[in-house]
Structures are given as C-alpha cells and as structure tokens.
Computed example of a mutant assay.
Amino acid sequence: MKLSSILNFCILVFFTLLFVNDFFPATTLAEVLSKKIILVILIVLVIIQITTAKGTYKRLSKKAYVGVTLYTVGLWIVLSLLGGESQFGLSFNSPIFYIIVVLLAFDLLRVYRQSKNEETEKKAQ
C-alpha cells in the first residue's frame, strides 16, 4: 500500500474516533483517548500527509468527496440513533444539523452537475 493511502485511512479512523468520543464521552475509549489527544494525532497525520506529498496538490476525486461527505453525515446520524448525545451540540433537534445537511446536499448536487458537464464536454470532443 502507498503511504498516502495508509495516512488517509488513519485520518479517517481518528476522525471517526473523535466523533465517537464526542457522542459517547463516558466510554473507556474516551478515558484512554481524550479529544485533545485525538486532535493532536489528526493534526500530526495531516502534517505528515502534506509533507510527504512533496508540494504536489492532488484534488479529492468526486467519488471520494461524495463518499467522505456521506460517511460523515451517516456517522452523525448513526451515533445519534445509537443514543449518543454530542457534547458539541450536534443533534437532530439542532437547526445547525438541518442547515449543514441542506448545504451538503446543494454541494453534492453541484459536484454531480459538474461531473455531468465534464462528461458532456468529453463526448462532444
């Protein structure tokens, strides 16, 4: 496996742990890995990823962008349905939740339209 793939996977795992830690702060996971420790690990992983990229900028593919977006919202919903209560204030009762979901839906629609336009342009050539 490539180092960038391993780093991306580790970032996703620690991002998930951060969410779980926020929704279920009374678990043993939260006692072992506090939010601060997870954030420090995430920052270090992102810095390592940036430095190993050696100045090359690689955009996230549209499929990966959609996947990460749906994963984040899905994780938020699943953790709420499991009875977790966010310490940060993320909940179904919060208007922020619905604002974020609507904004993400518009953004995903934008990405979909953009990919359709690119396909049309490729066919025209």
Rank of each mutant, 00 (worst) to 15 (best):
L70C: 07
F23D: 01
Q114E: 01
T27E: 01
L70R: 08
W76R: 14
I37V: 11
L33H: 05
F23G: 02
A64I: 09
L33N: 04
N93V: 10
F15T: 13
I6D: 03
L90G: 15
G83T: 02
Q87Y: 02
Q114A: 11
N93F: 09
E121T: 08
V13F: 10
L108P: 01
N93E: 06
F9M: 09
N93C: 09
L109C: 08
I96A: 15
C10D: 01
V66H: 09
G89I: 02
A30M: 02
S115L: 02
L79Q: 00
F9P: 05
F97L: 08
K122A: 07
S115Q: 05
A26T: 14
F92L: 04
W76T: 14
N8S: 13
S80H: 11
F106I: 09
Y98F: 15
D107R: 15
V66N: 08
Y71R: 13
L109G: 11
V111L: 03
F19V: 10
I47L: 08
Q87K: 12
I41C: 06
L108M: 06
L12G: 14
E85D: 08
L17M: 10
T72S: 15
V111A: 04
S115E: 01
R110H: 09
I50D: 00
Q49W: 10
G74D: 01
T69K: 13
L79R: 03
L104Y: 14
T27P: 00
S5N: 15
L7V: 04
F19D: 03
F106C: 15
D107S: 14
